[in-house]
């Protein structure tokens, strides 16, 4: 019989389909694992409302557990408390950078118009001489930057609070 710790371990083997270097635990998408009678309930939360990966994550979780003979599982999607980049693990931030995506840095309030975009160090050369190309990038959770030093275009995993 598996215990809760084992289920959490198995969650570390389920990867985000859009940022495949991160597990759903690194990302903070898995919120809770509880045992109810003979079955397990796993609670997940989306990064963004329209995140198209949620259904895939749910299927991948069920598949991973089934591989290890855990079958009585339900996955529940909750919206509150709303996901924030604060839930990204330190391990996750390190893996992002190694993968070439700049991890989130603290940002000023988004209600300030024309505020200077945050200074995001280049994931390749660590230069802080970078510029934001667009606050909307290849997926909902990323902005598009370019390094002015090594010229590398890169994704920035933008801060969401």
């Amino acid at each position: 019989m598996v215990n809760k710790e084992r289920i959490w371990e198995l969650m570390e083997e389920v990867f985000d389909p859009e940022v495949p270097v991160l597990t759903v635990v690194d990302l903070g998408v898995v919120r809770e694992i509880v045992k109810i009678g003979d079955s397990w309930k796993i609670t997940i939360t989306p990064t963004y409302s329209g995140c198209p990966a949620m259904k895939r994550i749910e299927d991948d979780i069920l598949e991973k557990l089934a591989e290890h003979d855990v079958h009585n599982v339900s996955v529940e999607l909750v919206l509150a408390p709303a996901w924030t980049t604060d839930w990204l693990s330190e391990n996750g931030k390190r893996k992002l950078k190694e993968y070439g995506i700049a991890p989130p840095v603290d940002e000023v309030d988004k209600s300030v118009l024309f505020a200077e975009p945050p200074t995001v160090p280049c994931p390749k050369c660590d230069s802080k001489h970078t510029k934001m190309v667009s606050q909307f990038g290849s997926t909902a959770c990323k902005a598009h930057y370019q390094c002015q030093e090594c010229m590398e275009p890169f994704d920035y995993f933008k801060c969401l609070k």
Partner: peptide
Amino acid sequence: DEQLAAIAEKSLKETKYHLKHSAEWVI
């Protein structure tokens, strides 16, 4: 209503980005 409040909390974070984007373009 708890579920409506949860939807609003989630959507608000995204709407702040949208408003910044559209307001800056209008200006």
